[in-house]
Structure formats: structure tokens, C-alpha cells
């Protein structure tokens, strides 16, 4: 359960984040030595955009404390499910290069299914495995793309070849 007050906090975080991002862009641009002698260098637009970010961030902060916000009455959010989906994606990109597309994507599929209330873990894993294997074959052999097979598998197959 998320209350109206935490919605306001969320909007304030967004506003603050934009101001911080604007500051970061300005500082990074200042620290980058300028090259070339164009009439307008590569630094002008970063400064303009960082200025815009700060102004919009301030305006959001004002709205967060005094103005109209979305879902001011609060909004129920199942944050556990959000965390599970996010974790599934993180596991996938962390393991993709080592384990390869098929295992890491199977884990992603099972994690997201669980977050949406699918309780039969083995069934979800099986469907995830089937989908991952199908996409691997279809895209790598049918469409000529390069989904990774994983460094472990590569090491094993190259050991066989020797």
C-alpha cells in the first residue's frame, strides 16, 4: 500500500533526481576540455539541457509539496513483484555471457511468471526453457543473429575439438 504521502515523496525524488542529473551534466561538461573551433562547440547544448533539467526539477519539487500530483489518494503497489521482475532481469544480464542465452533467459522467464502469480515453478521453467531454446535456434540459425551460447559452453565445445 502506497499512500498519497509517499506518492508526493516519489515525485520529490524525481524532481531531485532531475536537478542532480542537470548538475552532473553541467559538471561533466565543464571538466571536458573542448576541442575544435566550431562557432558553437559541443558544450552549448549540454549546458542548455542541464539548465532545463534543473528548472523542471524545481517545478516538480514545487508540485510535490504544494501542487496537484497523480494518485494523490495513494496507489496500492505490490513492490515484491516489482523486485522479483527486476531481479530476474538483473540475473539475466549478469549471467548471459557466462551461462549463455538459454539458461539465463529461462531463469528470467520463471522469475517473471512467479511475480505474476504463476505458482507452478517446474511448468514455468519448462515453458521458459522451450521459449529460450526456440528463440536461440530461430534467431541464430534462421535469422543470422548472435545470441550468446555462453563462455562455459564455448570452452566445453572447444575442449572437444582439441
Amino acid at each position: 500500500m502506497t499512500t498519497g504521502r509517499s506518492m508526493r515523496a516519489g515525485e520529490a525524488v524525481l524532481g531531485g533526481g532531475l536537478i542532480a542529473l542537470g548538475g552532473l551534466i553541467a559538471v561533466e561538461t565543464m571538466l571536458t576540455p573542448s576541442v575544435g573551433r566550431a562557432v558553437v562547440g559541443p558544450a552549448l547544448f549540454p549546458y542548455l539541457i542541464s539548465g532545463g533539467l534543473v528548472l523542471v526539477g524545481l517545478s516538480l519539487l514545487r508540485e510535490a509539496f504544494a501542487g496537484a500530483i497523480a494518485h494523490a489518494e495513494g496507489l496500492e503497489l505490490d513492490l515484491w513483484a516489482v523486485a522479483l521482475v527486476a531481479a530476474g532481469l538483473a540475473v539475466q544480464f549478469l549471467l548471459l555471457d557466462t551461462l549463455g542465452w538459454i539458461p539465463s533467459t529461462t531463469i528470467l522467464f520463471a522469475a517473471v511468471s512467479r511475480a505474476f502469480g504463476g505458482r507452478r515453478l517446474m511448468v514455468n521453467l519448462a515453458i521458459g526453457l522451450a521459449l529460450a531454446a526456440f528463440t536461440f535456434v530461430a534467431f541464430n540459425y534462421g535469422l543470422g543473429l548472435n545470441l550468446p551460447e555462453g563462455s562455459i559452453v564455448e570452452r566445453l565445445t572447444s575442449a572437444d575439438a582439441e
Binding site: T105, F109, V112, A115, F116, G117, N124, I127, G128
Partner: peptide
């Protein structure tokens, strides 16, 4: 569950 899991598989 499978629909959204599939959407994320194809997104990645």
C-alpha cells in the same frame, strides 16, 4: 504470467 514473461524475453 507467461504473457509478461514472454514480453520480457523478447524485450531483452
Amino acid at each position: 504470467p507467461w504473457l509478461y514473461a514472454g514480453i520480457l524475453v523478447f524485450s531483452s
